[in-house]
Design a protein around this nucleic acid. Structure first.
Lengths: 140, 140
DNA sequence: TGCTAATCAACAAGTCGTGCTAACTAGCAA
DNA sequence: TTGCTAGTTAGCACGACTTGTTGATTAGCA
């Protein structure tokens, strides 16, 4: 994702207004590696700006997603999560505590075999599930 | 997934009753490579057994899933899909028509890098998205 | 045969996300 | 500074998907 300042400029360019709500969301996402859901982000935002609505958070995230500034990741755990990291990366998920981390896999592109003649792959998503060091320690 | 006959035996073993509804679902899943949703399966089942309820389909699928006889796959496309193939396999999804195929990736286990010291991977899910030969042909 | 699980219909609820409206606020260009 | 217009808000609703509940009926199987 671009920096909050660059996003402000891009929003202006596109004719979107730069509101305090949007700027707050830019700042909350900047360098955020927690893969928040819209709801989570809303809760944090509401602490700093009581009165901001969940609706606005959803809307701003959709705009950022449409502009390619955030990735929208679905780990099948209910809510969609947002990731300001738009590199070609993948995810590890702790099935105990639900924490998500970005990881890089360098064997890509992967080869596969199956009954899929002529399929043109545009993207590959890899999700590693397991137990993070913290949870392993607690359960040991 | 086991054959319908074996499933009947397993259900009996576990003290579950073998009802016509359950047997129908076993048969519909047997060799099914279409990755149906519960709803889809229900529609097909209802043609052969009018009166079967969606509730029963959901319940039987949950039982099969709990017994490890079907995989329950979430491609982030709304409904959860069920796959009677419980091998260690992955999926390709056409983003145009939504069709899902099973594929095998032999480079696994994959290595990854990132800020995830001591993470114990239990499973890896890979989803290839793109365009299937059929859709590519239509759009050409 | 009879206990008990399974099924069914019908209704509800919960989660996630979006649509709509009406009123107010505020960005930003002239 | 003004004024157009987009953005925000609350509130209500809906839709998709999935599960819970209840109460009556059916049927598996020991």
């Amino acid at each position: 994702m671009k920096t909050p300042e660059e996003l402000v400029a891009r929003f202006r360019e596109q004719g979107y207004k730069v509101t305090p709500q949007r700027q707050l969301i830019f700042r909350l996402l900047d360098g955020n590696t927690a893969h928040p859901t819209a709801e989570t982000l809303y809760e944090v935002a509401a602490k700093q700006m009581p009165g901001i609505s969940l609706r606005t958070v959803y809307q701003t995230l959709s705009e950022l997603s449409a502009m390619g500034e955030v990735q929208h990741i679905d780990l099948g755990s209910g809510a969609v999560r947002f990731d300001p990291n738009v590199d070609d990366h993948h995810h590890v998920v702790c099935s105990t505590c639900g924490v998500v981390h970005d990881v890089y896999v360098n064997q890509t592109p992967l080869q596969f075999e199956g009954d899929v003649e002529g399929f043109a792959v545009h993207s590959t998503r890899i999700v590693f599930s397991g137990e993070c060091a913290h949870c392993a320690h607690l359960s040991a």
